[in-house]
Design a protein around this nucleic acid. Structure first.
Length: 458
RNA sequence: GUGGAUGUAGCUCAGCUGGUUAGAGCACCAGAUUGUGGAUCUGGGGGUCGUGGGUUCAAGUCCCAUCUUCCACCCCA
């Protein structure tokens, strides 16, 4: 049999110890913040029934679902007429009833409907789990990645949106990532489309507007016409495309343009209320900006939408979300509104790595290591090691009595701060020699003062 | 899904218009130092040049396919 190099699927990654320490630092940070705001953890299975997943993310999203092949001789059940080239999609639906989850929001909606009688509303939950997308991998784009979701469902209050803004602010403040938080509202976008008489072309309009920074106003207008929007409507869009000023100024301009659209005006009311709340939080480290070009592809958003971009670096959005008024309706529980955001742990990791934002202290897990000179010497150390561990200090005893040089190299590579040496001399004097690997200083201390000494110098 | 680049030691890369035994730095291992790392010196191991096919007297180098990674579009965390 030919030897093949072991490998993992495209777009997936292994994580080594030093990566995991850093990833956990991100997970711990978001988890701490989430629970501080009163959110409780849940988990759902990696796979869901395809019927749960399909149709929730748009055509594009459906294509990116990983499907799981049925067990057994499923081919028998397939309509023979389907089994020909070009019918792959229909066949796949006939032979797959499960799929890997695409995000955490839809499974959450399914969860809420399923356990509606056991849940106390408003239900605030967080969920940190991997999701899968059959996308083509790219920078910051993986086929398996972790989302950290916070959602509150069963409350229409815009205070929830405001609180999510504060959560976003706090998470990135703690992680030291400078961010721009873009905010928009689907109702405003609907209003815009309505006002120019193209309620059906919402996506075309936002996609085009989105490119203004990249390709300029003329190209955007050209693209709009190309997408079937007549010149008069394009003219009507101009004040919106070129919207300038503070968030409140933008809203004032929009209010003017959207006079004829009740839904658009509702969106403006919502945004104004949200911005009032945000101001009431006081100073935030994240910049918050109303950005009309923010549309977000996910079909189910109906109100506020959010997206966070890291400043100082080129990377897709590192956090995104919004309000969905009727996601649970599809599963049979209508009129329950929810709002939430999702932090992209892997992209945050990439940003932090490139900007060197991980704390130095994350490089080491063990603080103290006992040198191993042999069974008798190790026995002399064991009680002391246990005492240090009981004191919450992470301690290793080197397992083999190899060359001391080798043991020191091991400790050095692992960034272990203190080496405790107990050989013949130390045992005779009932002492330890403690070497600080950072300064290189080595001192002899009495056997019983080891804990005190380490604590004092840590 | 469309278009474009890339792949040589564990890592970063060199290798000319095809031509002997494919190199360097870092990393690794051993020794100088039989109880002391991070510095220095000496020596050493490690490659079917992503994979498979083709052209050729001869392929790391040219051609085709395939996979990987990356970039743009689309979309998104």
């Amino acid at each position: 049999m030919a030897k093949t190099k072991p490998s993992i699927p495209k777009g997936t990654r292994d994580f080594g110890p030093e990566q995991m320490v850093r990833r956990n630092y991100i997970f711990d940070t978001v988890r701490t913040v989430f629970s501080k705001y009163g959110y409780s953890p849940i988990e759902t299975p990696a796979m869901e029934n395809l019927s749960t997943l399909l149709g929730k993310y748009g055509d594009e999203g459906d294509k990116l679902l990983f499907k799981i092949l049925n067990s057994g001789d499923f081919i028998d059940k397939v309509e023979p007429s389907l089994l020909k080239p070009g019918k792959s999609n229909a066949v796949s639906l006939a032979i797959c009833e499960k799929g890997l989850r695409y995000d955490l929001t839809v499974p959450f909606a399914r969860f809420v409907v399923q356990y509606q009688n056991e849940i106390t509303f408003p239900f605030k939950r967080y969920q940190i789990q991997p999701v899968w997308r059959a996308d083509r991998p790219q920078k910051g784009r993986y086929r398996e990645f972790y989302q950290c979701d916070v959602d509150v469902i069963g409350s229409n209050s815009l205070l929830n949106e405001a609180e999510l803004v504060l959560i976003i602010n706090e998470v990135f403040e703690k992680l030291n990532v400078h961010t721009l938080l873009k905010v928009n509202n689907r109702k405003i976008l609907n209003g815009i489309a309505e006002v120019i008489g193209h309620a059906d072309k919402l996506i075309d309009i936002t996609v085009a507007i989105d490119k203004i920074e990249k390709i300029g106003i003329d190209a955007v207008n050209a693209e709009l016409r190309e997408r079937g929007i007549e010149n008069a409507a394009v003219q009507k869009l101009q004040p919106i495309i070129q919207l300038q000023g503070s968030n409140n100024q933008k809203l004032a301009t929009l209010r003017n343009v959207l006079q004829g659209s009740p839904i658009g005006l509702k969106g403006i009311d919502e945004m104004e209320e949200l911005f009032r709340y945000i101001e009431a939080w006081g100073t935030l480290s994240a910049q918050v900006e109303l950005d009309l070009s923010l549309a977000r592809g996910l079909n189910y958003y109906t109100g506020a939408i959010f997206e966070v971009k890291a400043l100082d670096i080129e990377m897709g959005s590192i956090c995104g979300g919004g309000r969905y008024d009727d996601l649970t309706g599809i599963f049979g529980l209508p009129n329950v509104s929810g709002v939430g955001v999702s932090f992209g742990a892997d992209r945050i990791y990439d940003v932090m790595l490139q900007l060197n934002l991980f704390p130095e202290s994350l490089t080491s897990t063990t603080q103290v290591m006992f040198v191993n000179f042999g069974p008798a010497e190790v026995a002399y150390c064991m009680l002391a090691a246990r005492k240090l561990r009981d004191a919450g200090i992470s301690v290793e005893i080197y397992p083999d009595a190899t060359k001391v040089k080798k043991q020191f190299e091991y400790a050095n590579k692992r960034n272990i701060r203190f080496m405790v040496i107990a050989g013949e001399t130390e045992i005779q004097n009932r002492q330890f020699s403690v070497k600080n690997m950072v300064t290189g200083n080595q001192v002899s201390i009495p056997y019983d003062s080891i804990e005190e000494h380490i604590k004092l110098n840590l």
